[in-house]
Nucleic acid binder design. Sequence first.
DNA 1: TTGAAAGCGCTAACAG
DNA 2: CTGTTAGCGCTTTCAA
Lengths: 335, 335
Amino acid sequence: MTTTLRDVARHAGVSVKTVSNVVNDHPHVSDEMRRRVREALGALGYRPNLAARTLRTGRTGLLALVVPDVEAPGLHGLVREVVRAATSQGFRVVVEHLGAGTGRPAPSRSGAPPGVDAVLLGADPVPPGLVDAHLRTGTPLVLLGESGDPRCDQVCVDGTRAAADAVEHLVRTGRRRIAAIGARPGLASAPAQPRILGYRRALRRAGLDPPTGYVRPIAEDRHEDGYRAARWLFAREDRPDGVVCHSDRLAVGALRAAADAGLRVPGDVAVIGFGDSAEGGYSRPTLTSVSADPALLAREAVTLVTARLDRPDAPPTRITAPHAILPRESTRPAG
Amino acid sequence: MTTTLRDVARHAGVSVKTVSNVVNDHPHVSDEMRRRVREALGALGYRPNLAARTLRTGRTGLLALVVPDVEAPGLHGLVREVVRAATSQGFRVVVEHLGAGTGRPAPSRSGAPPGVDAVLLGADPVPPGLVDAHLRTGTPLVLLGESGDPRCDQVCVDGTRAAADAVEHLVRTGRRRIAAIGARPGLASAPAQPRILGYRRALRRAGLDPPTGYVRPIAEDRHEDGYRAARWLFAREDRPDGVVCHSDRLAVGALRAAADAGLRVPGDVAVIGFGDSAEGGYSRPTLTSVSADPALLAREAVTLVTARLDRPDAPPTRITAPHAILPRESTRPAG
DNA sequence: TTGAAAGCGCTAACAG
DNA sequence: CTGTTAGCGCTTTCAA
């Protein structure tokens, strides 16, 4: 049924090795041979058996992209760019949801999923124990995001700086009462949570320490969470005149809350998001956003993988990807 | 370095076969054996070599999800749901961009990507020749979308009915001049393009045949394409009072165009989209949308795959997934 | 119920 | 430059 190298070899009247050489573009094959083999390859419709190749070489050519959920916020464009970057560097991408496995144990528990050359982890925060589990398996792991681990390769955005930049942007447009939406409830108290840290730091530097309750936790990262948090903020006596949202999705929810509360954006309140989603570019008003370049992140991550596969014992590399503020209508200077 | 079945067997003092039986939960193993083997498995940190297993069994446990682009519109929620459905049925998902391969030939040309048990194709329209290429490889192919092919399994939405429903919905809210945004330029003339067909049919039945130019082609499926098409429509003498957009993304672009043109939605013009994206639920105004349930689509598709793998020669199955209109602000009855 | 051995398709070491 | 061959780790007859 399926054509093997041997079939092709027989058909072309050459040895298996030669066919293999042709298939893999190895040198030291005469043009005449190459031509003949190519012909046989085509005639028989040869398709390489990846499993056999993998068994022999130890390389699958597969990268696992492990994320909480493909559509999780903060991931805008990342999946696409990882697929692109991986493809262009000769890998294919297996998408895996964190903790999704009903059958086998979830990757979060067992460490690296089997059958891949490396794992890209796009989860913030990194589930506890995951890094250790990986380290035990020996499969290279690259962290993508804002939180890191000194023991593995990572390409990350400086969340503290990014949040501070967002605050400074709002201050520059004349805002004084700046709130934040998007702290993870479980981590709200951890002072190290990078964005909250940056938010507080920037406000302190500006002499604008926020009142209690200005940092709103959310359950999940959905429009409605942003909406609810914003409604709550807008109902306060000391209503904020600027809101930093930890994703564009939350920010769009906040925009709607402002409208429902009869507030004008940016007149009464400015809103800034994270992630530069397409949605934010077409919301009303259009949304200012802080973002890194997902294509860059993805390329760097895949490059890290190849480097790691070449030298498994090199010390971990940490790459910091730049971020930028994309100013749009939602933060136009007031007045 | 890596632990093999033989290592475990030696460690437990049993044969390879017995270890294999335990790993695969085969019956006919005494409890005592099982216990001892389990222990050895754990102690040595055994991890099965998927490549070897695949080479032997012919099954990779991998499904390729081939799409134009992970973030392509019309795919809202599909990738996530395919990953979920596949996981729960024991598969993993390799995401492949159509024609993305810079190295090897793109899957659109060579047929099925190698090393997967089946291919799910989420591309509308299906690239010409792709189905033939697949058929030649023998890898099962399941089509997801609105266009189909009688030669392979498919789970699809009735695009003609869906578009007709959208038009009827607008008519019911009192609209008379109904335009459409989203015809693919290359196919604009093909009368079979299902949505355009449904659009025209429903209008004809309502005695509201559209004037020339009311069907706007777009280059891609982005906000700005919807925006531009809508601006053009709104600048006409016979400005439409209802617009059917072939994706939510286009529709959100159209909403913005309406605002920029000084038109109120739904007062002056109603807008309806396709896909029930989260974005449409939080746009201003919120967007009415026609959609199928992506989770259902995905589950059916994976079920089709397993059925096909069990009986390769069964006749192709076609499943039609239901769709529904989710009425929101953008199509509230006028007046 | 368990063990021994063959072989899936491929690559790489070695021989010619 | 080309051919022969061993063996990657696993499943699975077949025999005990």
